[in-house]
Write a protein that binds this DNA or RNA. Structure first.
Length: 314
RNA sequence: GGCGACGUAGCCAAGUGGUAAGGCGAGGGUCUGCAAAACCCUUAUCCACCGGUUCGAAUCCGGUCGUCGCCU
């Protein structure tokens, strides 16, 4: 497969804007590598590109799921690869834009073909964990028996991963560690020219606060109210999105709207920090300052044409 | 000016004689299908300051400074 262009970086650094600009100049189409922009109706708080942007440049993997549907790194990797193939068949340049490190890794390095767990099994494990259940320690012990390698790796408090590892072993009869070693990351690569956007922490945090405030002005709270009124369950996967949760909690009286907004800003800051931690050790990323983006675009363009991409898409 | 309360980390705060809880914030990190998730680690050689009592003081006593409240 021919190489693609990828734009990554923490939230609120301007990835979408840069992606648009590059796609327009290079004859590209955007492949969204974001876990929440896939949900219909979750627009403002996910900073989803608007209809105007999408009319100017084709976007893929946006608005493809209903809020109750589940998405995942593996699903993303499959869909993204398909989209990339189609775009390349049209002789256009795929521009992958996103901030989720795992999703990007799954796409570019290939993710092990681990079977999706049976929801019934997941529910049963949840029940065993819950009130009057055995508790996490017991489940962790069980995992030690079924998949000692993974148990060794995981901290005893990581409920989410312990459950997942048990799920895989129970459903497939093969431990997660075996699935992984049969096709580790890196076994199936898609070449990419990776552009990273970064900002000094204090500026990034200002940016985040400003963006959340703007989203609220643009009707974020009303959007959330509308989703609930339409019957979207607050327990839907889509409501895992930062801000949406907090706003729902303010509706439920847990805190005031101002507090919800403040909590949203905080959660976004923590998220951005985690993204930076992930990307920091990611190899083969050429970093550009997100300050003064307009002027950076020329430098990025130059870098892109000099990279393998210029040749591949002559 | 008088009286009273208070002064513990960037913020909030517990601790009232035995050698500084916790929360928030911040920073660092882990990551194979929930990833905008989940999890882990670090963050006060020291309790406004000075002196005293005591084997031992953030804790008791005196003074100084500061903050707040009430009174004049």
């Amino acid at each position: 497969m021919k190489p693609v262009l990828a734009i990554l970086g923490a939230t609120a650094t301007g990835k979408s804007a840069l992606g648009m600009a590059l796609a327009e100049r290079l004859g590209g189409e955007i492949v969204n590598a974001d876990a929440l922009q896939v949900y219909r109706g979750f627009d403002i708080g996910t900073a989803k590109p608007g209809l105007a942007e999408r009319a100017r440049v084709p976007h893929h993997l946006i608005d493809i799921l209903e809020p109750h549907e589940r998405y995942s790194a593996g699903e993303f990797a499959r869909l993204a690869e398909e989209a990339i193939r189609e775009i390349q068949n049209r002789d256009r340049l795929p521009v992958v834009v996103g901030g989720s490190g795992l999703y990007l890794r799954a796409l570019f390095e290939g993710i092990s073909p681990i079977p999706v767990a049976d929801p019934a099994v997941r529910q049963r494990l949840r029940d065993r964990l819950g009130e009057g259940g055995e508790g996490l320690a017991e489940l962790y012990q069980e995992l030690r028996g079924l998949d000692p390698e993974t148990a060794e790796r995981l901290p005893a408090g990581d409920t989410q991963r312990i459950l997942r590892a048990l799920e895989v072993a129970l459903v497939s009869g093969k431990p997660l560690s075996a699935w992984i070693s049969s096709q580790p990351f890196g076994a199936q690569r898609i070449a990419a020219t990776r552009i990273g956007l970064t900002l000094p922490r204090s500026i990034l945090y200002d940016q985040i606060a400003g963006r959340v405030a703007r989203m609220v002005r643009e009707g974020w709270v009303e959007e959330v109210a509308g989703l609930l009124a339409r019957g979207v369950s607050p327990d839907s996967p889509a409501f895992q999105a930062i801000g949406y949760r907090q706003i729902v909690q303010s509706f439920e009286g847990e805190w005031s709207l101002d507090q919800a907004i403040e909590e949203t800003v905080k959660a976004t800051r923590r998220f951005a920090k985690r993204q930076e931690t992930w990307f920091r050790k990611e190899p083969d990323v050429t970093w550009f300052s997100a300050q003064d983006l307009d002027r950076q675009i020329l430098r990025v363009l130059e870098h892109v044409t000099r990279s393998g991409l210029g040749r591949a898409y002559g």
